[in-house]
Simulated scan of single mutants.
Amino acid sequence: MSSNVDDRLSSLPEEVITQILSLMPTEVAVRTSILSKQWRYSWTSVTNLYFDDIHGRNLSDVYYVNYKLEVDRFTKFVDGVLKYCKTSQLKSFRLKFSFICVLDVSVSKWIDLAVRLNVRELDINVLELDLPLSLFTCKTLTSLRLAYHEHESWEFPSCVNLPCLKTLDIVVSDNPFNTAFKIIPGCPILENLSLDLAIRQNEHDYIFNIPTLKRLELTFRSIIDYVVNKVVLCLPNLKHLLVFGKIRSHFVMKDVSSLVDGETPSALRYYLPMFPNMTHLELNSFWHCGQILEFLHCCPVLKHLCIGEKLGKANWIDHPKLVPACMLTNLTTVVISNFNGQKCDIEFQEFLEYMLRSAEVLETVTITWENNMLCERLCATLLELPRASRFCEIHFIGN
């Protein structure tokens, strides 16, 4: 570039430069200090701190060549950044260490410093984790995500108090009653909760009694196949429920009267309450056609139905006499994904024929094939089926 060209980036207002640097990985932001004297300390005002152990690195070096050197270098780098960071309101602080194992004492110190900088969003994904007591009484924290790989229990103060926390996301490798369930009672305005739980044999029920909660996502990783846990939901303001994993749980819907959106595995099929406000439903993991119909009876205002993974073969009754209320007045969209055209043809045709004959306001049925071979015979058969709704279209996705 010509020497006569103005440096328009450096002429930007300081707050704009700070915003740009805050959007970068912290290591990149710090490197701008070598550009000129003017830029030497610009990075110290960033409001987002993001440390990632693999950013811009050769993983073979991290694993084999300079592992200890890399850990020491990274530890000193984070220490230095926090020492010179001069912001009084840290918007977000993120640590993601997937390959190097930083001492939990160092991680605890960094989190404590972030709390002292009035952090609002905290995202910690490390191999070892020891949380400072100051975290559990942070008055500015609005979002907290914790993921770690060692089996540990945290030390808690006598009273957890996170008055501004709205989002809590925890991956728990061990007993959640020593970690996550001690945090939840101290969050008076919690709206979003995501728990990734490793289910083990224990005597405790998983009770969720959170009046303010609007979204709940549960992922169960069963360590022992015969473990059966009881999950009690008393969530009067819950609007979105997502449940994943290998589950052998008894779900008790004590109060989910506001639920409008759900995504569930087959484990919930044996304990079906009414969902008077649910408008969007996703069903995964081997739901039988008959069981799907049973679920529809529990969702009188359902508008959108998504059936994922595979359809089972059992429990279908030809031409059921009672039509779910949602099919008469609300159900407009049905999506069936990953369907295998070589299996369940007869039952699937009967099930879809029943829906097309009964769903009076249905607008779109979309079928995605599991493999690249689209069964033309089945497509032709489905297209010829009579439809209660004259506006209904059937779409096929495949080769």
Results as ranks from 00 to 15, higher is better:
R8N: 07
E15K: 13
E15S: 09
T32I: 05
I34S: 10
Q38T: 01
R40G: 08
R40E: 15
T44M: 12
D53L: 02
R57I: 02
V71W: 02
V78I: 07
L82A: 03
C85A: 09
R94W: 09
F97P: 01
C101V: 15
L103M: 05
L122G: 10
D123R: 07
P132E: 00
L135Q: 01
T140I: 13
T142C: 07
L146C: 10
E152D: 12
S153P: 04
S153N: 09
P157D: 02
C159W: 02
N161H: 12
L162T: 04
P163G: 10
D174Q: 04
K182W: 02
I189G: 02
N192V: 10
S194T: 13
L197A: 04
A198C: 13
Q201T: 15
Q201H: 12
I207F: 11
T219I: 08
S222R: 11
D225Y: 15
K230H: 14
N237Y: 03
N237R: 03
V243K: 05
I247Y: 08
S249Q: 12
V252S: 15
V260P: 03
Y270R: 10
N277A: 09
L283A: 02
N284Y: 00
F286M: 00
C289H: 06
G290T: 02
Q291R: 10
I292C: 04
E294A: 11
L296S: 12
C306E: 06
L311M: 07
G312D: 03
N315D: 03
C326T: 08
I336F: 04
S337P: 03
F339T: 07
D345L: 11
E347F: 04
F348V: 11
F348N: 01
Y354A: 01
R357L: 10
E360A: 15
N371A: 09
M373Y: 12
C375M: 05
P386M: 06
R390W: 14
E393T: 13
H395E: 15
I397C: 04
